[in-house]
């Protein structure tokens, strides 16, 4: 098995719900707590396994906002595991999930240096590295209903922008989505072979503008006046 995520950049609305539900599940899960530093202070910070950034692609008027969630890619060539001197970091053979044994980690940060995707964060409180577990304490839990045996972020996403499945199975939902929507990997040139795939935004028909009436002189003057006068 090669478990991983597909993230649909076409429908992600950038609400950060996946990150919040990830934090909620994992802070009380096997790798928790995900410590917060000064949660009520001026500069609240803390450990997160999932972070969403927002980008502008292209130049106005042909621009688009892209909301970009990122968590561990569970790479096939996981250098973070290779560089770990203690053996705390490991990649499971049965499903490809990259995990950290909290009892073995010495907090040298070396694995985070080897990760190009910023997936690993040191918990300064406990002194050990933490990362996305693909909710390993959830996806195999037979006490949960089958539909709930998915990572917390996937279930939470209100836009259905996240999909979880087995990339080794060509007929799984994630393999089909990747095939049909030209899913791609991030920074493939580094050779980490990340498992997670990103679906690019669908092509949209441009809104025709040739039938828009030209501005009259008077409306141009009004517009200029409105801009020039400070309110």
């Amino acid at each position: 098995m090669k478990l991983g995520l597909v993230i649909d950049l076409d429908v992600c609305v950038g609400c950060h719900a996946c990150a919040v539900s990830c934090k909620q599940w994992n802070t009380s899960g096997t790798t928790g707590p995900l410590t917060d530093y000064q949660p009520y202070g001026e500069d609240p910070s803390g450990v997160w396994f999932n972070r969403i950034r927002h980008y502008e692609v292209g130049d106005y008027p042909h621009n688009k906002t892209i909301n970009f969630p990122m968590s561990c890619m569970h790479c096939e060539q996981a250098d973070c595991v290779d560089v770990c001197p203690t053996g705390a970091s490991y990649k499971r053979e049965e499903d490809g999930i990259v995990l950290i044994d909290q009892d073995k980690c010495m907090g040298c940060n070396y694995c985070s240096w080897a990760c190009p995707y910023g997936a690993r964060e040191l918990d300064r409180e406990s002194g050990v590295m933490k990362k996305c577990t693909l909710c390993v304490d959830r996806i195999y839990d037979e006490n949960l209903a089958e539909i709930d045996r998915q990572p917390s972020c996937v279930i939470t996403c209100p836009a259905n922008a996240r999909h979880f499945g087995d990339f080794d199975d060509p007929n799984s939902n994630v393999s089909q989505l990747t095939r049909e929507r030209s899913g791609y990997q991030l920074m493939p040139e580094l050779g980490y072979k990340p498992t997670n795939q990103y679906l690019p935004p669908r092509l949209t028909r441009p809104v025709p503008t040739d039938d828009v009436k030209k501005k009259s002189l008077i409306s141009s003057i009004k517009e200029w006046t409105n801009k020039a006068i400070a309110r």
């Binding site: 972070r51 927002h54 130049d59 985070s112």
Partner: peptide, 21 residues
């Protein structure tokens, strides 16, 4: 890094107000 290789990409918001690890 983002996969958008045919246009300029700019960061609008890093998603956090304070520094992170």
């Amino acid at each position: 890094a983002t996969g958008f290789t045919r246009a300029q990409v700019r960061l609008l918001d890093a998603g956090h107000t304070a520094g992170t690890f």
